[in-house]
């Protein structure tokens, strides 16, 4: 028996009060790995800020392990101080900022690996569905062989690579318009 998934609806402008958030994935600095910020702005077709958008991230720890039962591999140990999930609402300038660590490479199929990456999703008033993308890191050798990045038209791939800044990385999310962020099918 197969039943159809429930339809998505917009986040609307009023998500926040009473529901907790954490933009710090490191447990106050206890997680293993290189601590960084991952920050950026969410903008619309006019490059105007999108405020009160919900940005969620999901990533592996520094060893490349997901805190999830479907990922069990002794070579990539769990970190009790890192569960890999964070969310934050954008501020009046459309800005968001997470404190996290650089993830390790995670397995693909066979002997292939995925480059270090952070899964990113955006919900917002004005969007009926979630927009799902990935942030990659500059200078990673595995970027050239990443199976998901390879699915993105070559000219748009640089849009998924965060930019290094002092202390972390910038990953801007342009929902529509010039240099529009590539999003993956849901």
């Amino acid at each position: 028996m197969s039943i159809a998934p429930t339809a998505s609806q917009t986040l609307g402008p009023f998500f926040n009060y009473a529901l907790p958030f954490s933009a710090d994935l490191t447990g106050g600095g206890k997680a293993e790995g290189r601590a960084i910020f991952l920050r950026g702005r969410v903008t619309d077709v006019n490059a105007a800020p999108v405020r009160d958008a919900l940005v969620e991230i999901w990533q592996a720890n520094a060893a490349g392990a997901y805190a999830h039962p479907l990922d069990r591999d002794e070579a990539r140990p769990r970190d009790p101080h890192f569960n890999g999930f964070g969310r934050v609402l954008t501020d009046a300038e459309g800005g968001f900022s997470f404190t996290t660590v650089v993830p390790g490479p995670v397995p693909f199929e066979g002997n292939r690996w995925q480059a270090p990456h952070v899964s990113v999703a955006v919900f917002s008033a004005g969007l009926l569905r979630r927009m799902r993308t990935r942030a990659y890191f500059p200078g990673e050798e595995l970027n050239a062989d990443d199976p998901v990045l390879a699915a993105v038209p070559a000219g748009r791939r640089p849009l998924l690579v965060a930019q290094a800044e002092d202390g972390g990385f910038r990953f801007d999310i342009r929902l529509r318009g010039e240099n529009e962020t590539p999003f993956f099918g849901d």
Binding site: W58, Q59, A60, Y66, L70, D71, V106, P107, F108, Q114, H117, S119, R134, P147, V148, A151, V152, P153, P182, F183, F184, G185
Partner: peptide, 8 residues
Amino acid sequence: VEAPVTLS
């Protein structure tokens, strides 16, 4: 973009 579904 249609991309493979992975562990992530």
